[in-house]
């Protein structure tokens, strides 16, 4: 147990949290627009495999991330079309997207099993990274970690202070009223779903390109579902998403470190702890009451004329 270094632990927490943070942030925007997309896991795993395949073939992780975002967004458009144009049930369609994504990813990923990722350089910010304790924890990560934090701030700013954010929230709170005011409900939702897909794709690619870093079938292992839980935990607020993601990242890192340190708790019980904690947190949140859920969340919108 002495082998756990607290500084390294906190530093790896940020890396472990980034995939869930990206995916949860995307899903939050989707839900703010009144759409429940349960396909996060499917889009994440597709992003993971596409990002990895492009990264390996081109030798560029940046290109891998870009293509993963595109792949996630493309996949989310199937969901958008079926739920928004053909007005299907969102829960069932989202589940379908997850099953579809899992199949698609293992099909694409076959030739890539056992290959190493191209690598993604860390930033090593001069001066700041030399600060004792804080340096290794905060200033020696790869650019995606900082980008994810920037996106949290951007989403928060856009949703709170801009007209576009206001329209998005209006569409999510009451789609009939938003429609009556002349806003294009379906168009706004398509955009939100695409953003959610791109973010899930990025999150998935972070798992396969940086976190692990190789392709293993089913490697997201429920991270997409945990992201969905974090949106509820965060009461649909960007900064709380950050808090939630880092909390879960912390638990994951801690249990992995305990496994590596040869703790007396069996591996299986450590591995199930993030899922149990997710359930516990969901219960605590629901005791407090689900405040902040968008009014039209999950409901079918059909302009009746």
């Amino acid at each position: 147990m002495d082998s756990i270094n607290p500084i390294l632990l906190i530093a790896s927490l940020m890396v472990a949290s980034t995939p869930i943070l990206l995916a949860a942030l995307g899903e939050m925007v989707v839900e703010k627009a009144g759409v429940l997309n349960l396909g996060v896991e499917g889009m994440m795993i597709t992003g993971a495999v596409v990002g990895f395949a492009i990264g390996v073939n081109s030798g560029s992780s940046v290109l891998g991330f870009a293509c993963a975002a595109l792949a996630g967004a493309a996949l989310s458009m199937i969901f958008a079309f079926i739920t928004q144009v053909l007005l299907s049930n969102q829960v069932a369609t989202g589940l379908g997207l997850t099953l579809f994504g899992l199949g698609l990813s293992s099909l694409i990923g076959k030739p890539y099993v056992g290959i190493k990722a191209p690598g993604f350089a860390k930033l090593d910010i001069p001066l700041l990274s030399d600060i004792p304790v804080l340096g290794p924890i905060l200033f020696r990560h790869d650019p995606m970690v900082y980008l994810s934090l920037l996106i949290v701030a951007a989403v928060w700013y856009l949703l709170t202070y801009t007209r576009a954010g206001l329209i998005l929230r209006a569409v999510g709170e009451n789609h009939s009223a938003a429609h009556a005011l002349g806003y294009k409900v379906v168009r706004v939702r398509f955009a939100a779903i695409a953003f959610g897909g791109a973010m899930a794709g990025l999150g998935g690619a972070y798992v396969s390109l940086v976190r692990v870093p190789q392709w293993v079938e089913g490697m997201t292992a429920g991270a997409g579902w945990i992201a969905l839980a974090i949106v509820v935990f965060a009461s649909w607020r960007p900064w709380r998403i950050l808090l939630g993601a880092y909390l879960f990242g912390g638990i994951t890192v801690l249990q992995l470190n305990l496994q590596a340190a040869g703790s007396s708790i069996p591996v299986e019980y450590l591995s199930m702890s993030p899922y149990l904690v997710t359930i516990l947190v969901l219960v605590i949140i629901s005791v407090r009451g689900n405040h902040g859920a968008p009014g039209s969340l999950g409901r079918v919108f059909h302009a009746s004329q």
Partner: peptide, 26 residues
């Protein structure tokens, strides 16, 4: 044929089914 192709096939079936519901309801 890879086993995943069938999984994908099953996923597609669910999509088409949900998509076609529109004709029953509208």
């Amino acid at each position: 044929m890879p086993a995943a192709a069938i999984q994908l096939f099953q996923g597609m079936l669910l999509f088409f089914l949900l998509a076609m519901d529109v004709f029953a309801n509208y």
